[in-house]
């Protein structure tokens, strides 16, 4: 009887193993569970918080409708943070896109020490961002800035002049964008290298035979061919720029006078430090519809331009 049962069970397992329909679902299950538990649940909780009056020290909450959203749009700091977020995201992504293209092109060529260069470029991505940002904080320090020291040493600045990298709104924004670009560049470069590697060599050869120059070759052949994968890089970059606050938290904490405050950092200061979890949730979710729309648009674009 036992032998018969185990034989039947074994046969069922073999059938399940060979059934692609069920096997696929089974193998996807851990990823779906992960997303549901660690991303979906907090997200829906944040949605619920944003229409409530919960505080960081409270366990009870009441439904308040859109009151938190109406309150934040009347707050000048929020409006400033919204503008800063858009500036931060768009400028950093344009820079990342240009620099990643240059780097990817360079790293496609063969040269001595290529692996060292690749390793160095990847370093900002693999190092903890908080540590990297602290390094940059010292480079931008008002007294001990190595950048100022270098500029003084080469005679560009006189010895009594110190540039306050994080003390002027425009310089502070430029500084946080620089660090953000430094951090995201490796990912975008690796993605673009993958895209460039997938372009068949005969297409490049044909372009060369037809006499296409570098710019024409690049803009009319290479870019259209890697556009789908480049769209993915841009999408990643935008999501990071809109949702991350580590660089700003470490370097400026939103200063000087909120000129580098972004929605993610404002949400943290309001929700966690300030204790108003509901308003913090509303601030952090404010751009969610826009981000979802942008993600759909990017993915749709990526599919349309895909070369088959």
């Amino acid at each position: 009887m036992t032998v018969l049962r185990s034989t039947v069970l074994g046969a069922r397992l073999i059938r399940l193993r060979d059934d692609e329909h069920w096997l696929g679902r089974l193998m996807l299950a851990p990823a779906i569970a992960y997303i549901a538990l660690l991303i979906g649940f907090p997200f829906f909780l944040a949605l619920y918080y944003s229409v409530s009056d919960i505080t960081v020290g409270g366990r009870t909450m009441s439904y308040v409708g859109l009151r938190n959203f109406l309150a934040i749009v009347q707050n000048p700091t929020f409006i400033m943070a919204l503008k800063n977020t858009l500036t931060f995201a768009f400028v950093s992504q344009i820079l990342v896109l240009i620099l990643a293209n240059v780097l990817a092109q360079a790293l496609m060529k063969d040269f001595r020490g290529k692996w060292v260069v690749r390793f160095l470029i990847l370093l900002p991505w693999v190092a903890p961002i908080s540590l990297g940002s602290i390094g940059w904080l010292w480079m931008f320090d008002s007294i001990y800035s190595v950048i100022n020291w270098t500029l003084q040493a080469v005679g560009i600045l006189d010895h009594n002049t110190r540039i306050m990298w994080l003390g002027k709104p425009a310089l502070a924004m430029a500084s946080v964008i620089t660090v953000h670009v430094w951090r995201l560049l490796p990912l975008a470069t690796v993605i673009l290298i993958a895209g460039l590697s997938s372009v068949p060599q005969d297409i490049h050869d044909a372009a060369a035979v037809d006499g296409a120059g570098f710019w024409r070759h690049h803009f009319q052949i290479t870019i259209p061919l890697v556009a789908p994968i480049m769209t993915v890089a841009v999408l990643f970059g935008f999501v990071f720029a809109f949702t991350d606050m580590i660089v700003i938290y470490v370097l400026t904490r939103g200063g000087p006078y909120n000129s580098t405050q972004v929605l993610a950092s404002l949400a943290f200061f309001t929700g966690i430090d300030g204790g108003d979890l509901a308003e913090g949730a509303a601030i952090s979710l404010f751009l969610f519809p826009l981000l979802v729309a942008a993600a759909f648009a990017f993915l749709h674009l990526a599919r349309r331009v895909e070369v088959t």
């Binding site: 904080l137 306050m164 990298w165 994080l166 003390g167 200063g255 000087p256």
Partner: peptide
């Protein structure tokens, strides 16, 4: 003072 006070932690 100087502008460095805007940069402080």
């Amino acid at each position: 003072m100087t502008d460095e006070v805007f940069t402080w932690d």
